[in-house]
Design a protein around this nucleic acid. Structure first.
Lengths: 220, 220
DNA sequence: ACCAACACCGGGAAAATTTCACGACGTTGC
DNA sequence: GCAACGTCGTGAAATTTTCCCGGTGTTGGT
């Protein structure tokens, strides 16, 4: 490893998965994994102490999610290069991630070459999106349906995600370090923006748009 | 690698994740990954042709899911040793997987040692379950989830169905020829009986129990 | 540099709702 | 007969939702 190697921070709550990234990336010359984090808060801390050239981050993680972590890192360093690598094959998430400041969005079903390609593209200053998501985005452009991701701000989307994860207003306020009042206000605003009157409709809409998937549901 | 190595089939739809397993397992003497599959059907085919000593399989995959794959493999070979390795930290899935014939259930949040331990245990003929799921199982044993159809009176169940069909309190009152107040009272009582605090949890529970199915959701 | 637009945070107060306590009525089953 | 329960509803308190407001910080255009 030379001094000119690009440094990378890996963020994923599954340690064996991090091992996978590491294994794939280490085969590439010029790349060096310098740190790993298992959740968003830790990622933020490590970014500040290590200031790596690139962050590769998952979305669904305990505590603050990946989107929120992206937002915070970019707030701290506007030049941060962040590549989202996630299981969610969903245009909405991609839109939100890019809006929050990510420079790339690659799904975990992609072959390793796609990840490597995206890493290099992002390091070169380009925006990298995996082909399946490109396709999804094209489709949603065609159908013209206004999705949650389109009308919600990153913060609102994050609150929505936490609401769907069956947290209470107080727990969410705690997680995001804001007052419960703010969460309640956002909850109300979200419903307004999405044009639903009740929480029940809200969940149904989230299911239709793939923000909440059936596998997230909990015990059978 | 000696002829006495235990042979392993890896099944996961994320290639980079398979790379992670492989990397962790290859550090262990006596273990050899001989095949990889990206979905349930391929796993079944490969099992029949390779008859490995152990299968490590994910649950959420395209096509036939992991549970179904477990069932088929066990149907073909009653002695098959299958270890489920998944992101779902969920007692219900674990129960289903074990019932389908899996000999182990480990979550992806577990450290690599736990996976390695489980692999050895299953190869030794034991049943291996990661600590977090053990805990979940203990909890769910204590407070089993109340089945909606069980504890609700017919009238309450009917109101629940109408609530899920995204009707307002007033519309339901109209439909049932009762006062909106009664519907509101029942709504509250239903949540109480089912042990949920919010409407969001209510919908989730209904989905889990099949009262509301995803096909009811309306247009995409 | 300036301004407009917007995201974000939360207080205050009105409006709506949820929840609780309490009856009333009818049916069922012992 | 009567105890238990489902059903329906009222009133009042408790809580939540909603709306309106001001403040801050950032972004983008002129």
């Amino acid at each position: 490893m030379s001094a000119a190697d690009a440094t990378i921070l890996l963020v994923d709550d599954h340690s064996v998965v991090r091992e996978g990234y590491r294994s794939v990336l280490q085969k590439q010359p010029g790349l060096r994994v310098v740190a790993e984090a298992a959740d968003g808060a830790e990622a933020y801390r490590l970014y500040k102490s290590e200031t790596p050239d690139l962050v590769i981050i998952d979305l669904s993680m305990p505590g603050i999610g990946g989107i929120e972590a992206v937002r915070r890192i970019r707030q701290w360093d506007k030049a941060a290069r962040i590549l989202v690598f996630t299981m969610h094959e969903n245009a909405g998430f991609a839109v939100q991630a890019i809006r929050a400041g990510a420079r790339g969005y690659v799904t975990k079903t992609s072959p390793p070459e796609t990840l490597v390609r995206a890493v290099k593209d992002v390091l070169a200053g380009k925006i990298a999106i995996s082909p399946d998501i490109d396709h999804e985005l094209a489709l949603s452009r065609i159908s013209g349906e206004t999705s949650a991701a389109d009308v919600l701000t990153p913060r609102e989307f994050e609150v929505l995600r936490l609401l769907l994860a069956e947290n209470t207003t107080e727990e969410i306020a705690e997680t995001l370090h804001v007052s419960p009042k703010t969460v309640a206000n956002l909850h109300s605003l979200i419903k307004d923006k999405l044009g639903v009157a009740s929480d029940i409709e809200l969940v149904r809409l989230a299911l239709r748009q793939g923000i909440l998937t059936e596998v997230d549901l909990g015990e059978a």
